[in-house]
Amino acid sequence: MFLKNFLYHMGRYTMMLGTSFSRPEKHYMYYKETMRQMNDIGIGSLIIVGLISIFIGAVTAVQFLYQLDGTLVPTYYVGYIIRDSTIIELAPTITCLVLAGKVGSNMAAEIGGMRQKEHIDAMEIMGVNTAAYLIMPKVIAALVVIPMLVAVAAFVSVIGGYLAAVPTGMMSDAEYIQGVRSFFEPFNVVMMFVKAIVFAFLLTTISCYQGYYVRGGSIELGQASTNAVVFSDIMILLADYLIAVLLTG
């Protein structure tokens, strides 16, 4: 039963993606919708992403300073640990998990609401490829904007670590900066962007899928919104593991 269900949803998800990435009826309309989505996802999520990132950096700094206390490991390593843990793991993963909750649930509710109010039927009857018009701009917008948000998150986290460690006197300004500049591996940034792009694709397509095929009333819409977050989160964590294995193995 589980396998049958899984195969059914995978098949329908794949077919939806096939229909979504087809030639637009009017490029300008898709461009306009993509810009709107970029604004919603990017500007709309900037504050929450910034806030979370600053605390991620701050907490990492405080906890590593606590753990390194009394050991022979130099204190400046804290800057290095914050930079790399943020770039490799925390910025892409935590940001995308948060975005799955904020952006993903919003997408599922928006498309699901349109399905229930017959807006999608209305567009279909006009001759619009609704899967393409409603999903492709969201995916493209997310693929462009989410990596940018992740880069901002990584930068803000390093600042957050600095604010938690230096002004409080836990370590010196020079030590922190030395740590941030030590042992830099540019490939880690590539890994961050690979993760950001894969997670962005997963969270938007899974959320759109949940909304696009919603049936019933407000309870089902709520369920679709919840499923969008839950399945996006699970798939992001699974992809995180696979990317880690593939790119660091």
């Binding site: 309309m29 807006h119 039927d121 209305a122 009857i125 006009m126 001759g127």
Partner: peptide, 28 residues
Amino acid sequence: KVGMLFQASALFDSMTVEENIRFPLDMF
């Protein structure tokens, strides 16, 4: 070549009346 009037009108909430009517013209 088909027009449809829905039971609940199915007008797009986020668009004005003019944008709703113009939508098929913009698209096609």
